[in-house]
């Protein structure tokens, strides 16, 4: 099927601009969809996440060995990478994003699977936890926008980094070497030792490193880890989350896109 450049360009713009077009390839969450998802899951995800979705696949132990993370246990209903408030389930879009982008260091990107295939897997992954049938996760709104005055924004971000005591875990320079981390006191929900992220290496961020990604991480927290949600404390001023995000980007030793 050929198309003229202009028409293709328009379709692409629409696809980027609205979510409805993306949803078009999303199949209905039926038994048939889940069954197709299961076939794909057992060929691809089982080795890490296990046949029963408990995160205990035959290759699952070796990734973190005695430390965090282990592959996610889908039957526990706790997820790290969400657009929803702490304690809530992720949206379908959240799960789809994780599968598509992968998790730096721990899970490869599965962008090579067709979009339909990835949605089928999402449906199957959700079937491991009954809560997905009864709850309707709602994303937190991303309010505000980054301030154009970068210097002021960075100053405010730096102040917030100190007053929110991010440095206790992440270190003054953001190297992931704060006193709490160095004391080896940080544990994940399953009791395994976990490291605070090295904020100077945004390419290792599991939840994305763009400004909106960082704001999302700060608002939602990473459930099941010591990284808390700052939604309550950041709600006073819309720009605070963006200032902090700007500052995090400035900590980076890498050039970020």
């Amino acid at each position: 099927m050929r198309c003229q450049n202009l028409v293709c360009g328009l379709v692409l713009l629409l696809a980027l601009g609205t979510s409805t077009v993306v949803q078009a390839t999303k199949p209905e969450d039926t038994a048939a969809t889940r069954a197709q998802g299961q076939v794909l899951f057992e060929r691809t995800c089982l080795f890490c996440h296990g046949a029963t979705g408990q995160g205990d696949g035959p290759a699952g132990w070796f990734l973190g060995r005695y430390a965090s993370p282990r592959p996610r246990n889908f039957t526990a209903g706790s997820f790290k990478f969400r657009s929803t408030p702490s304690g809530d389930l992720p949206t379908d879009q959240d799960l789809f994003r994780t599968i598509t982008k992968g998790i730096p260091g721990y899970m490869p990107s599965f962008a090579s699977l067709s979009e339909a295939a990835r949605w089928q897997i999402v449906a199957y992954v959700k079937s491991f936890y009954p809560g997905f049938r009864t709850e309707t996760p709602v994303p937190l709104p991303l309010v505000g926008a980054p301030t154009p005055q970068l210097a002021e924004s960075l100053d405010r971000g730096r102040a917030l980094y100190t007053s929110f005591e991010c440095h206790t875990c992440h270190g003054t320079e953001g190297r992931g070497d704060g006193p709490v981390t160095q004391a080896g006191e940080l544990k994940d929900a399953s009791g395994l030792q976990i490291q605070a992220a090295d904020l100077t290496r945004p390419s290792s961020f599991k939840n994305g490193a763009s400004l909106p990604d960082l704001v999302r991480t700060l608002l939602t927290g990473l459930d099941g880890t010591p990284m808390p949600s700052y939604a309550a404390r950041l709600s006073d001023r819309e720009t605070d989350a963006w200032d902090l995000a700007q500052y995090l980007r400035a900590l980076s030793a890498e050039s970020v896109p």
Partner: peptide, 22 residues
């Protein structure tokens, strides 16, 4: 290439785990 640790595929390099074998 895939931005994962060696242990995604290896029990201990060069020995492969089930994911690495596949």
């Amino acid at each position: 290439k895939y931005d994962v640790q060696c242990t995604a595929c290896h029990t201990a390099p060069p020995v492969l785990n089930t994911f690495g074998q596949r």
